[in-house]
Amino acid sequence: MMTDTVMMSKPGLIYRLYHGKTIPILTVLLSLLVIWYGGAIYLNYDILTSNYERNDVSWDAEKLVADAWSMKRPILPAPHQIATEINKTVFQKKITSKRSLVYHAWITTSATLVGFGFGSLLGILLAVGIVHVQTLDRSLMPWVIASQTIPILAIAPMIIVVLGNVGLTGLIPKSIISMYLCFFPITIGMVKGLRSPDVLQMDLMQTYSATKSQIFWKLRVPASVPFLFTSLKVAVAISLVGAIVGELPTGAVAGIGARLLSGSYYGQTIQIWSALIVASILGMVLVYLVTMTEKFVMGRMGYRS
């Protein structure tokens, strides 16, 4: 009886797997893994065979595959090697340890969040100025766009050097680079959002002889919220990129960027790959958090999802 009602009320597991996103996502993941394992054999083949020849080791296909998937410094590590490394550096180390990826991820995250916070603030302020002051619209907008045409990899070392000279090191320069990248989508999105009220909605305010600030708070701001969240999602992802890029030129000792850098110094490809994976998981978590906030706020504002 019990199972019957459960079966009736909920679609079966197989049905849900078949119609949900799970199967397609798993299929893509599986094909990626197959290609990856194959690629690991192909890319590591040359090093392995020349090693075998030099050391006069007899080998067959089975040994080659086993070795290709368990090298210490492979060209391309196998997925399980990366998984083992992540397990070791995330779960097996104390999070305060310099060898813990959690510790490094936190260093980068803190710079990301500070940069994202200030970037959002700067982005919104610029947008408010551009929407309200005609001169700013004409004078500022071209510079805002121009700022993004400078390659961040070129300007990041300059920012670090200049700020280092005035005594600012560590978190601040990284946050500034992160801010420099992330204010842009927010400015663009918010300018569009603050200008999104239609003629009728504006006329309505006119008939109430509302002041500029009343129009701003009661119409422009709420109308811009959907635009804000769309830009925040883009901004938070590139804030993370900014923070990582900011860690590269200083030879920083901590952070995801530092892990990438030291990994490439010592040919620790497994370390590089696990840092990459952790960085992308971090990015996904940040975007997810913004999406959840968006759902909550938009729900409270009565927007249909």
Partner: peptide
């Protein structure tokens, strides 16, 4: 008259603000 809010205006469309109940 507008500044004194002498009239109420009803537009062709309801022009309700969607984020307000």
């Amino acid at each position: 008259a507008r500044e004194k809010r002498a009239y109420g205006y009803v537009f062709q469309a309801p022009a309700l603000y969607p984020w307000r109940t």
